[in-house]
């Protein structure tokens, strides 16, 4: 390698600046490692999302992308319980094509003895009810992303 090329390579390496992506999880996942997802409360609608109940869809999402090491369907020996209530609001809009479903997921994460660790709500809307429910549950999984610094 010529001296010029080496100098150019050194210059480019020197020009490399850091860039960090970070997230701080709402829960300490090293302390609260497992969660039991209680049956979801859904008003009025019977839904299946890709062949799954909304509860199973949420469990699958938390398993794949959430910060909990273990996500359970049974309230056995777990560190936390997650309770979710889905409310659906239908808006007719000005004409039939404008209609939207607004889905609000209100959630609460608590210890088995009832002490609340985290609570909040996420919402999403779409002209398709299934899509709106799915997106709201995806938002909930997104809320429980693990902490990272990349």
């Amino acid at each position: 390698m010529s001296a010029r090329r080496a100098a150019l390579a050194a210059l480019m390496l020197g020009a490399c600046t850091p860039l960090t992506f970070s997230n701080t999880a709402p829960v300490d996942f090293t302390r609260y490692r497992s969660v039991y997802v209680a049956p979801l409360v859904i008003d009025r609608y019977e839904l299946e999302l890709h062949g799954l109940s909304p509860r199973d869809y949420l469990i699958e999402g938390l398993n794949a992308g959430g910060g909990f090491a273990r996500v359970d369907r049974d309230p056995g020996v777990v560190d936390t319980h997650l309770y979710v209530e889905l409310r659906v609001q239908y808006d007719d809009g000005f004409d039939r094509e404008d209609h939207t479903y607004r889905v609000t997921a209100t959630f609460e994460l608590s210890t088995p003895d009832g002490r609340v660790i985290d609570r909040g709500q996420v919402e999403d809307d779409d002209s398709d009810l299934y899509e709106a429910v799915e997106d709201a549950l995806d938002e909930l999984v997104h809320h429980y992303l693990p902490s990272y610094r990349l």
């Binding site: 850091p18 860039l19 960090t20 992506f21 970070s22 997230n23 610094r149 990349l150």
Partner: peptide
């Protein structure tokens, strides 16, 4: 966004 930190190391 808060999660984007230009010029910051890990």
């Amino acid at each position: 966004s808060d999660g984007l930190e230009p010029g910051v190391e890990r």
